[in-house]
Structures are given as C-alpha cells and as structure tokens.
Design a protein around this nucleic acid. Structure first.
Lengths: 166, 166
DNA sequence: CGGTATTGCTTGAAGCATCAACTAATCCCT
DNA sequence: AGGGATTAGTTGATGCTTCAAGCAATACCG
C-alpha cells in the first residue's frame, strides 16, 4: 500500500456491500432495458427516452439543449441520436424561431406511433425488473437515495428528476 | 393509446419518481467513474474493476468466465478488455492446467502497481459522489434495494454481489 | 468407444458514446 | 456600434460494447 497523501478512508463492510450492489445494478440495468426495447421496438433505451420526452412536450417539440439535459446526456450524444432518429423519420429538426443558435426537435407522427407502441412493453419490463421487485417503502427510499446521489452526480441539477414531480 | 393486450399497469407517481431517479443515476454514474479513473490512472472503470478483482484473488489469477461473471459483464466484453490490458502489460493470459478449454488471467506486477496506485483516488471519488452522500441508514437501504433488484436483473445470481460479504 | 451437445473463449464487424475541434449566432461591455 | 466571450449545436475520429459466428476442448449418452 503506497503512501496515501490525504489518508483515503476506505469503505467499511456496510458501505462496500452497498457500493458493490449499486455498481452491479448500473452495469446490468442498461442491457436489460436496451435488449427488450431493441427486440420489441427497434430502439435503444436512450432513443426511447428521447422520443418519450418529446411525446410529452407541448407541440411534441423541445430544444436540443433542454432535451439533452433532461435525458441526462451530453449534447453530442443527443445530436448523434437525433440525427439517426431523423434519418428514420421519427423526429425532425428545425431552427428555433426565437434563438438563431438553437435547434428544435419535433416528434413526427410516425415517431409518435413508435413510442406509443413501445411504451407498454417497456413499462412491463421496468415493472418486471425493477419496480415490482421493491416494496412501496423501498420505492420511497430509492426516491430519496436517488435525490441524494443526483445532488452529487449532477450538482447543477439539470437532469429530468428535478422537474419530474410537478 | 393502442389496445394493450395484458393491460399494462402504468407507474404511479411515487413509482415514476423513483424510476426517473434510478435511470438518471444509471446514466450519470458511469461517466463520473470513468472520467476520474481515465484522467488519473489511464483506466476505464471496467478495466479498473477487472484489475481490482484480480488483485484480490489468490495468485492474482482468475478464470475468464469467473472474472466475467464477477464483473457483471459478458465474456466477449471481458475478452476484449483483457486483450487490451495484456497489450499494455498489466495482465497476462495462459491456458488453465485443469481445463483445456479455460483461460486464466493473471495480474502482472506492473498491473498490481497500477491498481494500487489507482485505488485511493477511486475510493475518494466513490465517497465524494456516492457513499458520503448517503446516511448510514440509506447505505443499508441501498444494500437491500440492490439485492432486490439484482435478484431480477441477474436471476442466476452470478454477479459479484452474491459473494461479496464473506 | 463414437458421436453429438455443451462449455469456454476468441474474433471481426457494426453501432454507439466520447473527445476535440469547429461553425454560427447571440450576449455583454465599453 | 464593435470585439471578445459565451452559448448552441454539429461533425469526424477513436475507442469500447455488442452481436453473430466460429474454433477447440470436454462432457454426456447410447
């Protein structure tokens, strides 16, 4: 063990047990979400997330920056994703009338059909693998834990969670 | 809303709030782990995880299949990762004496130095972004929630969590 | 024994995320 | 008004993950 400048506090057994499980969930969950959506609807989970976000917006339209923040992604990632969705005719882009720099993304009617079609299977999957695995008490705890973590992971509080519970 | 065969039960507000936060954590955490390790030690989080696992094994050696399961990854992913680590001289591979099909991965001394060097910064980061954000009570809750989720996400219970708390 | 199935692992191609670099429009300050 | 800084977004290259396919060794079964 090398000399450790500020004396790192190693994780105690309880902390380590929780951490190991969180890491495992973080590794496994994306695959579970992606493969169901890919198989049943031809979408990645991120693409679904983007479409779902748009489907709930007024005019089914949102600015790229807003969409990126609320899907917890970088603008670069979103830009590539929207280009691919546009090529498939699920979304269209147009410059914002209000700000010449901004681009708006709008769900097409084909895009709307795709999300609406995908939603039930996705929610079933979320229940099967996550929500229904937890007691109502744990659902509440997860909410609070999520808030605590997001305050650190995303200090500027830009992500969707902040705006979620109207 | 299309006809929905088995009548999907949509998420109620409490469920939805917890789910949105979990998704956000799952999206944001990997980036936080990767960028600290990449910056300070030139490793991805997954590479660090592999090296750390090996560093705690007897002979600093493990079979590929075991290592894949305990890092919550597919064998393909591990195979590519180990090849890259081998090219960098952090790991070496050799056929298992016991089973002609199996391959063992062993940490080299250079690999050992790299993990030992990376560990303090990584743990600091985990504390800063996760563990220290939670109360001791929440750490316990997260442990239990993790178990409940992993029972669904990994029904065969192959991942590390199962073996973690000796 | 002999053949088939299974297990363990690797490989190459394709797709997605990330990083750095870039363009363009607006803001801000004097 | 003019110029630099900031904001919004895109693009191309690189690297990692996944998927499909394949090979080799062992296990199983008649």
């Amino acid at each position: 063990m090398p000399y450790d400048g500020a004396m790192t506090r190693w994780l105690d057994p309880a902390e380590r047990a929780a951490w190991v499980r969180l890491v495992a969930v973080v590794e496994l969950l994306p695959g579970v979400l992606d493969s169901q959506l890919r198989r049943d609807s031809g979408l990645s989970h991120y693409e679904y997330f983007v479409l779902a976000m748009l489907s709930e917006a007024p005019e089914r339209t949102l600015r790229m920056t807003f969409l990126a923040q609320h899907t917890n992604a970088t603008l670069t990632r979103l830009s590539h994703a929207v280009r691919r969705l546009e090529e498939r005719g699920l979304v269209e882009r147009f410059p914002s009338p209000e700000d010449g720099r901004a681009t708006n993304a709008r769900l097409t009617s084909r895009g709307w059909e795709v999300v609406v079609d995908a939603a039930p299977g996705h929610v079933d999957n979320v229940r099967a693998h996550v929500v229904d695995a937890l007691t109502p008490e744990q659902v509440g705890q997860l909410h609070a834990i999520g808030d605590a973590l997001l305050a650190r992971l995303d200090p500027d509080g830009r992500m969707a969670a902040m705006y979620d519970d109207e």
